[in-house]
């Protein structure tokens, strides 16, 4: 098999394998719940695990573009939708754990949590922003929206990721080590994009710079991203 250009069948196999791999922690958590091995406070354990897996999968999804560019393996892009949807599934699990397992769908308590507790406010906002992304993940939706608009909409994933890390940061009582690690990974993933964007802008500026007099015959068209 060629790593550069897998056949459609190979790509399908890669996707299936990745999906299975992503299901392992979910299975592990479900088994722990059923066998009562999640410790003294299993609901809290599920809450923390679903939250952390949402963040991990989100960061993995955001890693696809930089990995593709660094490795030159363009088919990696074909995994992104699935990773995004797995992220969303974990987020749904996280939201349900809170609203259902923890608060027993007590709407007053749920509303009070969203309004009174800033970390839940931002966490809930992150979920709300994720919802349209999940709903427009199909190829049909891309066609319906048009590539440019679809892409503009899906850039809000950066906001979702920032809110997600803030959610974790604000939840922690005193030991910020773990949220700090997530924040650093996110900063790297967003930073590399900003860096490349800046490089691209400069490259185009340089290309568009007026050439030495007397040698240039054509017409200059400046193509500079805003």
């Amino acid at each position: 098999m060629s790593l550069r250009a897998p056949t459609p069948l190979q790509l399908l196999a890669i996707k299936a394998l990745l999906l299975l791999l992503c299901l392992v922690p979910a299975g592990h958590l479900a088994a722990g719940w059923m066998h009562g091995t999640l410790g003294a406070n299993p609901i809290e354990a599920v809450q923390h695990a679903t939250g952390e897996w949402t963040l991990r999968m989100l960061l993995l999804t955001l890693a696809v573009t930089p990995l593709r560019r660094l490795s030159g393996l363009h088919w990696l892009l074909r995994l992104r939708r699935m990773l995004g949807l797995i992220t969303f599934a974990w987020a749904c699990g996280h939201l349900l754990t809170w609203a259902w397992l923890d608060l027993w769908l007590d709407w007053t308590a749920i509303a009070a949590d969203i309004l009174d507790r800033p970390y839940i406010t931002v966490g809930f906002a992150a979920f709300a922003l994720m919802l349209p992304l999940a709903l427009t993940s199909s190829t049909a939706a891309v066609r319906w929206l048009g590539g440019r608009r679809w892409q503009a909409l899906h850039r809000s994933v950066y906001g979702v990721a920032i809110l997600g890390v803030v959610h974790y940061w604000w939840l922690v009582k005193a030991d910020l080590l773990k949220p700090l690690l997530y924040a650093l990974v996110l900063a790297a993933l967003l930073g590399v994009r900003a860096w490349w964007r800046e490089q691209e802008r400069r490259r185009q500026l340089a290309a568009a710079a007026p050439p030495a007099p007397g040698r240039f015959k054509g017409k200059v068209i400046r193509i500079v991203p805003k």
């Binding site: 406070n41 609901i43 809290e44 923890d102 308590a109 009070a112 949590d113 009174d116 507790r117 800033p118 970390y119 939840l171 009582k173």
Partner: peptide, 9 residues
Amino acid sequence: PRWSQASER
């Protein structure tokens, strides 16, 4: 700001 103190588990 972190936990509802109205109830407990």
